[in-house]
C-alpha cells in the first residue's frame, strides 16, 4: 500500500508577468515503511513538495493522498497526527524562550491528549535524551541535542509519516552520524515512513531506499538508491550530481 501518493502536483507564486511556476506536475509514490529521498539543488522545489504535504501552502493543484486520506486545502487537525515535519536548522526551529518540556507538550495540548508529562519523558528517552533535559532551554543544548528534540517533537503525536527537510545539513559530520543512526533506528522500531529532502547524495544513499531527483520543479528521475552508487542513473542531471558528490579531484574547468 502506498503511504504517500502525489499526482500532478503543481504550484505557482505570483501573478501576471511575475508568475513563477515552482512545481510542474510532480508525481511521487512512497510505500508504507519506505524511506524515500528527494534530491536536487537549491531552488529545485524539493522543500516545496514537503510544505504542500505539511499544509503550509494551500494554493497548489493536483492530488495528494497520505495514508489513504485525501489531503484537502484546509487540513483537519488529525492530519497532523499522521504527518509531522522535522526542519533543517535546529537552531531556528525551536522556540528560544520555551523550555524543551513546553515545546514538547504544546502539540499534545493542541490535540487534547492527557498524560503529557509521562509522554514527554518517554519520547525524550526514545531519542536518546533523558529527563534532565526537560527544563532546559534550547540555547543550553548542542546542535545534535536540539535536532533530537526537534525529532522528539515530531514524534510525540505518534505520526506514521515524517517529512524530513535536510535534517542533518546544519550539523557536524560526527553529529550527523548520530542523527542518521537515530532516524534509521526509529524507522525500524516504529514502522515510520520517511520523505527526506537533502542535497547530500551520500546521506540519501545511506538512509533511503528510493530517490527522486528534482530539477527546476520537475522530477527528472526516480530510482533505487543503490543504483546511484552503481552508476545506474540514466538521466544526465542525476549523473552530474553523482559525479559532483563523488569527487572534487581533477576538477575540469567547466565554469
Amino acid at each position: 500500500m502506498s503511504m504517500i501518493e502525489i499526482a500532478s502536483l503543481s504550484l505557482c507564486f505570483g501573478t501576471g508577468a511575475a508568475l513563477n511556476a515552482v512545481l510542474h506536475d510532480v508525481d511521487l509514490s512512497v510505500a508504507e515503511g519506505e524511506a524515500f529521498g528527494l534530491v536536487g539543488e537549491s531552488g529545485s522545489g524539493k522543500t516545496t513538495v514537503l510544505r504542500c504535504l505539511a499544509g503550509q501552502y494551500q494554493h497548489w493543484t493536483g492530488q495528494l493522498q497520505v495514508a489513504g486520506q485525501t489531503v484537502t486545502r484546509n487540513l483537519p487537525l488529525n492530519h497532523y497526527r499522521t504527518v509531522q515535519m522535522v526542519f533543517q536548522d535546529p537552531y531556528a526551529s525551536l522556540h528560544p524562550r520555551y523550555t524543551i518540556d513546553a515545546a514538547l507538550q504544546e502539540p499534545l495540548r493542541i490535540h487534547g491528549i492527557d498524560g503529557r508529562a509521562q509522554k514527554v519523558s518517554e519520547i525524550l528517552r526514545k531519542v536518546g535524551l533523558n529527563d534532565s533535559f526537560r527544563f532546559r532551554y534550547p540555547h543550553q543544548l548542542s546542535g545534535g541535542q536540539r535536532q533530537r528534540v526537534a525529532i522528539a517533537r515530531a514524534l510525540i503525536l505518534r505520526p506514521r509519516v515524517l517529512l524530513l527537510d535536510e535534517p542533518t545539513s546544519a550539523l557536524d559530520v560526527s553529529v550527523q552520524a548520530e542523527i542518521l543512526n537515530l532516524l534509521a533506528d526509529l524507522r525500524r522500531q516504529e514502522g515510520l515512513t520517511y520523505l527526506m529532502v537533502t542535497h547530500d547524495l551520500a546521506v540519501v544513499a545511506h538512509l533511503c531506499d528510493r530517490v527522486a531527483v528534482m530539477q527546476q520543479g520537475r522530477v527528472v528521475e526516480t530510482l533505487d538508491s543503490q543504483l546511484l552508487a552503481s552508476d545506474g542513473a540514466t538521466h544526465a542531471y542525476t549523473r552530474l550530481l553523482v559525479q559532483a558528490s563523488r569527487d572534487i579531484q581533477g576538477i575540469p574547468i567547466a565554469v
Binding site: 559530520v173 552520524a177 551520500a202
Partner: peptide, 20 residues
C-alpha cells in the same frame, strides 16, 4: 579516524554509522 568513519558514503553502505 573517527571523523572519517562517521561520513556516510555513496559507495559503501553500512547499516549504522560508527559514532565518534
Amino acid at each position: 579516524r573517527g571523523l572519517l568513519a562517521a561520513l556516510p558514503s555513496l559507495d559503501h553502505r553500512r547499516a549504522t554509522l560508527p559514532v565518534l
